[in-house]
Design a protein around this nucleic acid. Structure first.
Lengths: 136, 136
DNA sequence: TAAATTACTTGCAAAATGCAAGCAATAAGG
DNA sequence: CCTTATTGCTTGCATTTTGCAAGTAATTTA
């Protein structure tokens, strides 16, 4: 198994956060759960950014180890697993929201999707509530 | 020169943000400017996380390209340069703050520095104002 | 009972990161 | 001024991480 990113031992909160989810993929997975309501390995694989299978499983394991994601069996289908956020994971909603706001302000590309940023501006509490419910 | 992380072409705001600063080092540099008032190449080199020289210059160039950081000559010392945040860079303050809050809640290590998280809880507006001023 | 689904694993290539050394332009000290 | 120190880099190479393509095992569906 490929090793997850090594953690740095300083007490800095920014470093702690980066060591937990500051890589190219972890927050994409968290977004897929929070924003798109995805729950399964194959659902994560189908996202626009096309993560590789080995990286995906690696990040899922790391997020599970860090207590951000929880893996349970799907009672309906014994070959499927359900990945959900823990409260530690749901508490990343504000981080995600501020990133979305920032991008909404500075992403000038035509393909930029500003809907989420606008929704946050209109009613941030409601947006956060919906993220935490792990929409949709 | 080593190439910076390649950008993904989806319109997703989370992806846009990650492509701008979602690597192991960019936010550490931004933290050093905002939280510790660092301005120079050598000051960044001296941070606890010990970034390599080639990576540092690579990230500074990328942050400059992305309009997050601005590089100017130091009028006092012609061999020195000053790296400062643009307004686009200063607008990352809320992202940094939410990361600090999250770490304040979940970093249980003895070395965890919770001062910043506590300060944010007590007076978030003031904390943000000070970050934007590029304290100290 | 054969084919499809789901969740992975494995091997290898490419890219990013990290380390150590060196270098050029200034500035400071004797 | 002439040597040494400072500042901001660059370069080469080893290590680590990422990415791609293929394959596998346990179900489940047709």
């Amino acid at each position: 198994m490929t090793k997850p990113t090594q953690k740095r031992g300083t007490g800095c909160p920014v470093t702690f956060a980066l060591d937990s989810f500051g890589d190219r993929w972890s927050l994409i997975i968290i977004r897929d759960i929070m924003v798109h309501g995805k729950k399964t390995y194959t659902a994560f694989l189908e996202s626009d950014e096309s993560i590789a299978t080995n990286i995906l499983i690696n990040r899922l394991k790391q997020l599970e180890t860090d207590g951000i994601v929880k893996k349970t069996r799907d009672p309906e289908n014994r070959r499927s697993y359900t990945y959900t956020l823990t409260s530690k994971g749901r508490d990343l909603a504000p981080v995600l929201m501020e990133m979305i706001r920032w991008s909404g302000k500075y992403d000038t590309r035509p393909e930029a999707m500003k809907d989420a940023a606008n929704a946050i501006t209109q009613d941030p509490e409601d947006f956060e509530r919906r993220l935490r419910e792990t929409a949709p």
